[in-house]
Amino acid sequence: MGEVIEFSAGGYSFLRGVSQYSGGVSALPGFRLERARLRQPLKLKDGFAVAEAYLRAAGRPLTAFAGCELRSPAPFSEEGFVAFNEEYTQTLAAWGLLTTGLNPVARSNVCPKIAPPPEPSIYAFSFTMPSDDPTPSFVISGSAEVPEGHAAYRDHIVRRGDLSADGLRTKAQFVLCEMESRAGGLGFGWNDTTAVQVYTIHNLYPFLADEIVSRGAARAGLTWHYNNPPVVDLEYEMDCRSIAVEHVI
């Protein structure tokens, strides 16, 4: 992840990331981030249509779209993930979000182990609204236990295939550090968060207290989704946010 870039057309700044998402977003002065969760995830096309209608009804440009939380049927192969990302970013381009040559939108994409959607779907999205509230407002993109920026994930996954208690702890440590790095890059920390989410089908209790709670990452509780990360062989993912206004639509 790299420098912080202002995206004035959307009312937020973003942490430079990879082609499919940024490292995170924070509202610019005069704006705040809000979040809308769909009552039921909707397939990509329909979910984007709902988001578009919602933004227009709120009097916001489509460039105000700042974060997207996805649900997919099962972990992708590396090739499948590349193909999906190309499909996903087509809408962002059509909405004028890629005009800087970079992707400003924060994202998580995870796979429910039980009752997954039949195809990639939108679960929630975040957007900017005008506001004079100076309270921190940000969304940090999901990260699993692999550094970004490599041509392929497989050879760089932390403790790949190791589902021992120590292996899972090491994976979690990497992800927690990545969350801290991304949030810190935008000027924030755990004390600023209003929600932290973890995505794994494995037992996190052995390291919950001394790795997660002790860092302050569960200050507002911890939401555990029984989901896999989006690529085969990834086992543990987290994201976090500071959002005062959330909707269910």
Rank of each mutant, 00 (worst) to 15 (best):
S22N: 06
S22Q: 07
G23R: 10
G23Y: 07
G24H: 07
V25L: 08
V25W: 09
V25R: 03
L28E: 09
P29C: 14
F31M: 14
F31C: 05
R32Y: 10
R32E: 15
L33W: 10
L33I: 15
R39K: 03
P41N: 02
P41I: 03
L42H: 14
K43T: 00
G47K: 04
F48W: 11
F48N: 03
A49N: 08
A49M: 04
A51Y: 05
A51Q: 08
A51V: 07
A51P: 10
E52G: 11
E52F: 03
Y54Q: 04
Y54H: 12
L55M: 02
R56N: 08
R56Q: 06
A58Y: 04
A58R: 10
G59R: 00
P61K: 00
P61W: 00
L62N: 11
T63M: 07
A66D: 02
G67N: 04
C68I: 13
C68A: 12
L70D: 07
R71V: 13
R71S: 09
S72H: 13
S72V: 11
P73G: 09
P73Y: 13
P73R: 03
P75Q: 10
P75V: 07
F76L: 07
E78V: 11
E78G: 08
E79Y: 11
G80S: 08
F81W: 15
F81H: 12
F81I: 02
V82Y: 14
A83R: 08
N85R: 01
E86K: 13
E86W: 04
E86A: 11
E87D: 01
E87A: 10
Y88N: 05
T89P: 01
Q90A: 13
T91W: 13
T91D: 04
T91S: 13
T91G: 07
L92K: 14
A94W: 06
A94D: 15
A94Y: 02
W95A: 05
G96M: 05
L98P: 03
T100H: 04
N103K: 08
P104K: 06
A106F: 06
R107I: 05
R107M: 15
R107W: 07
S108F: 01
N109M: 04
V110K: 09
P112H: 06
K113E: 01
I114P: 02
I114L: 15
A115W: 12
P116C: 06
P116G: 01
P116Y: 15
P118K: 13
P120I: 00
I122M: 08
F125P: 00
F125E: 02
F125N: 01
F125T: 03
S126A: 09
F127Y: 14
T128V: 09
M129G: 01
M129A: 15
M129H: 00
S131M: 09
S131K: 10
S131Y: 10
D132Y: 00
P134F: 05
T135V: 11
T135M: 08
P136I: 09
V139K: 02
V139Q: 06
I140V: 12
S141L: 11
G142M: 08
S143K: 05
E145Y: 12
E145C: 09
E145M: 09
P147W: 01
P147S: 02
E148Y: 06
G149P: 03
H150T: 08
A152S: 15
R154W: 10
